[in-house]
Design a protein around this nucleic acid. Structure first.
Ligand SMILES: [Mn+2]
Ligand SMILES: [Mn+2]
Ligand SMILES: [Mn+2]
Ligand SMILES: [Mn+2]
Lengths: 217, 217
DNA sequence: CTAAATGTTTAGACAAATCTAAAAAAATAA
DNA sequence: TTATTTTTTTAGATTTGTCTAAACATTTAG
């Protein structure tokens, strides 16, 4: 068993190495954990002693298979709780992350399995992120960043790569929620902003926003 | 805000002074917290500094109004989660206490209010204990110990004063669950065991068991 | 009412997770 | 390739909650 703090470190290391298999740097972890590099080094040593990460001084860390499974399990719990909060307690998608940050550390296998069943085994969370099954398996959801689409192309919104409440509220206001169909009308040369048609309406989003909207073509 | 440990101390002090307004003794707290008296003294000082308890050396502690409200709020959360686990996730009444011990420390007022609503504002938990409202108010549920009933008298099971899984499973097996009507047939002189009729069937429970069954006459 | 037993507090230490300041290694630039 | 900058690690402290051993206070028994 790991402490809540260890679980948070593992989860952050997992997310930082999700899209590349480089070793994760001490400073990157420190930033996400909102702590100092010195504290990260201390914790890394502890995780290495527990065989949850591979660590060589000055070379960064990688999760071991054991560490990876532990991290994925935390992610599974986080996302299941987010589904619960939205589907059952009627929270908005921008309100659930912080509460799930706490709930994800409740450790009861039985609880999570029954919650999963209660929610009818959801495949993705309110932000479109995949929910691993109890063995840590999940299908990566294929996507293209909206900012990469050419004018004329169409797609469905399947996720977001930024989870701040501010960003999610902004999308909500624009009607850009999960499952919505969109067509790219034009990309402004000047600032890269994207002109869209969603439900017969014209909508414009900045390049920055478009980068964080994930689309299935 | 208080730490998880502080919340547990407050809750234990609350339960220990629930049925009498004596000051609570250091050793009593130590036993419930499964820790040593010295540790309790340390924590008591901290709680006193935070005005959550009144404390005079060697004289035990009492909750302040503030401490009482904090404790009751933890109890509210505990019992609401227990209802959730039984009503929504189909746990048995003997399986929920330990999980609720963890869930009770999730601190989000919004979460608890929505959970309360989702559960249709239950008045009591799976063990018959009253659930305080968000202002800490609740009606004490009146009861008599089954061990105090005279032969011939009838009543409804409204609660239990022992929450161990072993005890609850035992009651379940005997069919002595919340809401069941019973009639006392006889009390054995020799060992104080109680002969009951429940749903036309004869059931015998030991004096010890009868002491922990709470009945509405 | 004194002595023994019981209950409580203090003193000093420890493990977990953090911090600051300084030293050491690695990466980058001149 | 040497010097500078950036990144990482170490050393030593701090906070929270715990512990043991010993001192102190209160209660109970003779
Ligand atoms: Mn989240
Ligand atoms: Mn999410
Ligand atoms: Mn309980
Ligand atoms: Mn209960």
């Amino acid at each position: 068993m790991q402490s809540l703090t260890e679980e948070n470190y593992l989860k952050i290391i997992y997310h930082l190495s999700e899209n590349n298999d480089n070793a994760v740097q001490t400073n990157a972890i420190a930033e996400k954990m909102q702590t100092k590099a010195a504290s990260v080094t201390d914790m890394i040593k502890k995780l290495a002693d527990k065989r949850l990460v591979d660590y060589k001084k000055y070379q960064g860390v990688k999760l071991t298979e054991n560490g990876r499974l532990t991290a994925i399990n935390v992610v599974r719990k986080h996302r299941l709780w987010e589904v619960f909060l939205v589907e059952k307690l009627n929270f908005k998608w921008d309100e659930v992350h912080d509460i799930a940050e706490d709930l994800e550390h409740i450790n009861s296998t039985e609880l999570i399995e029954r919650l999963d069943e209660f929610l009818a085994f959801p495949k993705s969370d309110p932000h479109g992120d995949p929910i691993p099954d109890k063995n840590g398996k999940f299908d990566a959801i294929p996507f293209t960043k909206l900012s990469k689409l050419a004018p004329g192309s169409t797609g469905l919104i399947t996720g977001v790569s930024e989870h701040s409440s501010l960003f999610l509220k902004h999308l909500e206001k624009l009607g850009l929620t999960l499952g919505k169909a969109l067509q790219v009308k034009e990309i402004t040369d000047f600032d890269g902003s994207v002109e869209l048609i969603v439900e017969q309406k014209n909508i414009s989003v900045s390049r920055e926003v478009a980068r964080h909207i994930l689309v299935k073509i």
